Every structure is written in structure tokens, then in C-alpha cells.
Amino acid sequence: MTNNIIIGNLEDDSIEMAERKGIGHPDTICDEITEQISTELCRYYIEEFGAIMHYNVDKALLIGGQSAPAYGGGKIIQPISLIIAGRATSHIKDKKIPIEEIAVETAKKWIQKNIRHLDISKGIDIVSKIRPGSADLVELFNRFGKGEIPLANDTSFGAGYYPTTTLEDKIIGIEQLLNAPRTKNRFPFIGEDIKVMGVKDPSKNYFTIAMAMVDKYIADLNDYITKIEQVRVFVTTSLNLSGSTIYINTADDYDRKSVYLTVTGTSAEHGDDGQVGRGNRINGLITPYQPMSLEATSGKNPVSHIGKIYNYLAMDLSRAVVENHYADYARVFIVSQIGKPIDNPQILHFQLKNRKVEKKEIEMLAKEKLKELSGYWKRIIYA
């Protein structure tokens, strides 16, 4: 960039930035594990009792460990700590529900599947601190078990937009390419902890990639430098990014021999902490130039937790508006009041670009989507 300070107008879309955190990023690990625990709890409740019970397991803190990476293979000195917290129905009549066991085993299975070089027996300690829910929120939830429209368990909002921009699509494409199984087979030294920041200015796109490198596949500094360049060429050619500038591991200092080397493929092994809600929104992106809710969706109950289902609804509605050719671009904002039926929001607001139909057609679409809300949990847990 020739000038790092840019002064523009609100209508100017020539400048843009967005970000995506990959599957091995500490924040994404927390998000993904709590969401998987949520899904497993739902399935357990349904199998054992025929209905989902009250719970929210949307809190997790990953405390980075300590490691000593080295060319050819280093070692873990102190394991990562993962603390999972939330609220869940743990007893129904005389039956005790193994909440802690479900949480811990689900976390272990997820790590084994997704972070290939992290040994769950030595590299991470997992602790579950899930406790019973408050009586008033449990009572709000009981309507669902009776077949009634659930009541919102929070005063919160959801936000969504469609379509995504070209820059956003390329950011997603880069991360998915680098974490694809075929890429790991070709370049086994690429870890799962990948973050992609994309910036657009009037002249071109710039992508900054933070990519954990697995030490046992790298012989020395020269080999590291060679492999970084191999990845740069691979990304550029695979995604047709020849007109863009790609930076990889910009914190590296080759003169000081300081590079992004890891034992496990994630920065969580050495001091990089993680937390639910600090990562990607449900569309897989962090978008300061687009509407998004800071509400964490991961781990929340998909039946009545507005912080989850209204964000899904906002994304679905904005997509439906565009795909039905009602407008070229849509933003949707929807807010609840605690204790009110989830299909009766306080307000549902559309912001549209180039609307092509009468407002009543969009109102009908919104009403149809609101009718589907009581069944949203099925598409979330059985996705």
C-alpha cells in the first residue's frame, strides 16, 4: 500500500477487511468443542427422554501450555488446559445424566479428529465445570417439552447479511484450502492453526496468513523458508490469486532465527489462550465492515437461546431475500425480549439494496421463516 491512512465516505466500498480463524486456532477450538458438546447433549436428551432439556454450555477457556519446538521435532513441557463451563439439566426424576463425562469425552474426540499432532493423553488437560441451571430459565424452557412455542431465554439480538463479498470468499477459500486433508497430505508440515486476514484497497487484495508449522517435518531454517515459499505458490496458483499479495508468518525474523515453529500445529501449545465467542461468526468470518453480533453462538441451546437461533435466522433470511431475487443485497437485524415467544420478536429489520418486489412479499417471507423457528434445533444438531 502506498498510503496507509485513507479517508473516505460511508458509501465507499473500495476499502474492506475481514478475517477467518482456522480450526486449530485457540478461539476456534473453544467454539467448536462447546458446539459439539451442545450437539451431543441434545442427542442424549432426545434418546433418553424424547426431548431436549434446559442447558447452555457456551463458556470455555483454553489456557495455553508451554512447549520447546525444534527442527526435526520438539516437545511439550506443560500441557494446554481447557476449562468447560455452563449449565445443564443433570437429573430427571431418579436418573442422573453424565454431563461431565459427555463434555470431556466429546472434547477429546474432537481434538483427536481435528488437531492431528496434539496427544490428548499428554498435551491437554480437560476439566468440565457444568452446573445445574437457574430455576427461572428452566421454567421458561419447559414450554418446549410440552410442545408449545419456546420462550426466549434472553433479551438479545441476531444480525446477518448476504451475499458475502469476493474478499470474504477468498479468505474462506484460503483457510479451507490450507486445512483440507489433501493439502495436509501434500504439505504435512502445515498445522491446523491458521488465521487469514484479508484487506482490499482500490488497487488490489492483500492476504496475511498466520500458519503454524509442525517442527518434526522441518530440517532447518533454510528448509522452513523453502516450505513457506512452496505454500505461497500453492495458494496463489490453486485459488488464482496472482493479482494479490500474500504474506505468510510476518512475525518471522530470519536473521534472528525466530520463526513460527510448533510441536502440535497450534499456538495453544505455548501461551496463546482461547475463549468462546472471540472467533468466527456463524458464517465463518469476522467482518468489521459487515453487521455481526458479538453474541457467542457456540454451545448455546438451539431451542430457545436467542443468541444462537436469531443469528441463524438473520443469516437465513438475508440469503433467502437475495436468492429469491427480492433484492441484490440484504441485511437483517432481529431482537428478542426474554420471556416472549421466540417467533414473536420485538422487531425484525431489513436493510435492502435494490429491492425488486413489494414490501408485503418480504413480510410474507419473514413470517414463514418465523414459523419455522420452533424446529430450528433439528437443522442445527443434525446438520
Rank of each mutant, 00 (worst) to 15 (best):
G22M: 04
P26D: 13
D27V: 08
D27G: 06
D27M: 09
T28A: 13
I29W: 05
C30F: 08
C30L: 13
E32A: 11
E32T: 09
I33Q: 00
T34P: 04
Q36H: 06
S38R: 05
S38Q: 12
S38G: 09
C42G: 04
Y45Q: 02
Y45F: 08
I46Q: 03
F49Y: 11
F49P: 00
G50Q: 09
G50R: 09
G50E: 10
A51I: 15
I52L: 07
I52P: 00
M53C: 13
H54A: 14
N56P: 12
N56C: 15
V57W: 04
A60D: 08
A60W: 11
L61H: 08
L61G: 07
S67I: 10
P69T: 09
P69G: 07
A70L: 11
Y71V: 11
G72Y: 10
G74L: 09
G74N: 07
I76N: 04
Q78C: 12
Q78I: 14
P79R: 05
S81Q: 11
L82Q: 02
I84L: 13
A85M: 08
R87K: 08
A88V: 05
A88H: 02
T89M: 02
S90W: 07
S90R: 15
H91V: 15
I92C: 09
K93S: 10
D94C: 09
D94Y: 15
K96P: 09
I97H: 02
P98T: 07
P98V: 08
I99S: 00
I99F: 02
E100N: 14
I102R: 00
V104N: 03
A107D: 04
A107I: 06
K109H: 11
I111F: 02
K113Y: 08
K113G: 09
I115D: 01
L118M: 06
D119V: 06
D119F: 06
S121C: 13
S121W: 10
I124M: 05
I124C: 04
I126A: 06
S128R: 03
S128D: 07
R131V: 15
P132K: 05
G133A: 06
S134L: 10
A135F: 13
A135V: 11
D136F: 07
N142M: 14
N142W: 11
K146L: 14
G147N: 08
G147V: 10
E148A: 11
E148D: 12
E148Y: 12
P150R: 01
P150Q: 02
P150W: 02
L151G: 00
A152F: 03
D154Q: 03
T155Y: 05
T155C: 04
